[in-house]
């Protein structure tokens, strides 16, 4: 018998329980941590995920056989005890806790430790082996308070209104868009959303996670009435012909990468807001400490550097190659 979870060319595999976690090739049983496209792929026979993730998966993947369970609700599969725990990343995002003969592993998918009005807060789960992302696993990545970032967005929006410019805010359609929409002061001006954001908003509204129905930007809307508007769209909208039609406009990007001058300049946006759905350096370190785990497996992001750091402070840490992408700066992947 090998390890409780192993890394194969199809994904993270539990041989004893005969299931995969976020597999990247078609398998029979897939447990899905959350609805971003690099974690939930097409072609599996049976999907299991958090109840709040099921409509997201159906929206993205079409007709699939999917079962939803609640956080902390456990079941047994061939002697392996499985349960899901909040990861704080996006709506329905979960860490997968796997236990067999007293040994506990947690695969955390993507997670963040900071607040989010839409996602249930990250819950530290005691385990022996913790599988972590490290998208922002370098000591320069430390997020400013969410509140101050939102205030910056609001003042950017206000100053655009003064200059008669449309405000276009680019944020992942699934997760970050809803987070911003829930936090921003809606009295500043009208808010519209891109079609991709609109359909994900609908799922959030159905579950009671988003109150307002922000109208989507259709061609019939008079351009003049957009002058004081905020438009929320996926990152691929920046620089697109769709966006150019809105000119004069100010384009902003909400992403953890906006912390770095270089990436901000590379994206060539007018403003960058530091807002990420991933744990920052302090978040990663705190989360790992709280699991009490001795063994840490780094799967995506700055894996080599972060594993080396973990070894430096005394963990048994190593890396495994996966096809997870974390928060991407250069690809215009809208992870709907």
């Amino acid at each position: 018998m090998g390890q409780l979870l192993s890394f194969t060319d199809k994904g993270i595999f539990c041989e004893q329980g005969d299931f995969y976690i976020d597999p990247w090739r078609p398998v029979k049983n897939a447990i899905i941590t959350h609805g971003h496209s690099d974690h939930s792929r097409l072609g599996h026979t049976n999907y299991l995920t958090h109840t709040d993730s099921t409509p997201i998966l159906k929206h993205r993947l079409g007709t699939i056989s999917v079962e939803g369970i609640k956080y902390r609700e456990s079941f047994f599969k061939n002697g392996v005890k499985v349960s899901l725990h909040p990861a704080g990343h996006i709506l329905g995002s979960a860490q997968v806790r796997v236990e067999h003969k007293g040994e506990v592993w947690v695969a955390s998918g993507d997670y963040k430790t900071g607040p989010d009005p839409v996602a249930e807060a990250f819950e530290p789960v005691k385990c022996h082996t913790f599988i972590t992302e490290c998208t922002f696993g370098l000591p320069v990545f430390r997020w400013p308070a969410e509140k101050s970032v939102i205030e910056e967005v609001e003042s950017w929006w206000r100053s655009n209104i003064q200059q008669n410019k449309v405000s276009l805010l680019c944020a992942y359609a699934l997760g970050k868009a809803q987070r911003v929409l829930s936090l921003i002061d809606p009295t500043i001006g009208p808010i519209y959303v891109h079609g991709a954001v609109h359909s994900i908003n609908a799922i959030h509204r159905d579950g009671g996670f988003l109150e307002e129905d922000f109208p989507y930007l259709s061609n019939s809307i008079d351009k003049e009435s957009l002058r004081d508007a905020l438009i929320v769209a996926p990152p691929s909208a920046a620089g697109s012909t769709w966006a150019n039609k809105l000119k004069p406009l100010s384009v902003a990007m909400a992403s953890g990468w906006m912390l770095l001058r270089g990436s901000k300049r590379r994206r060539n946006v007018d403003r960058g807001f530091i807002l990420s759905d991933h744990a920052d350096w302090d978040g990663l370190n705190a989360a790992i400490k709280e699991t009490g785990a001795e063994n840490i497996i780094c799967t995506h992001g700055y894996t080599d550097q972060y594993a080396e750091w973990l070894r430096y402070i005394g963990y048994n840490a190593y890396t495994e190659k996966t096809l997870f992408e974390g928060e991407s700066i250069d690809e215009n992947v809208a992870k709907e």
């Binding site: 370098l138 320069v140 770095l260």
Partner: peptide, 21 residues
């Protein structure tokens, strides 16, 4: 450790910025 500083610097691409962060 210095090695992590160096790695981080290569990602940030600017010494003044790395230290400021």
């Amino acid at each position: 450790p210095m090695s992590l500083f160096e790695e981080t610097y290569h990602v940030v691409g600017d010494m003044a910025e790395t230290i400021s962060l």
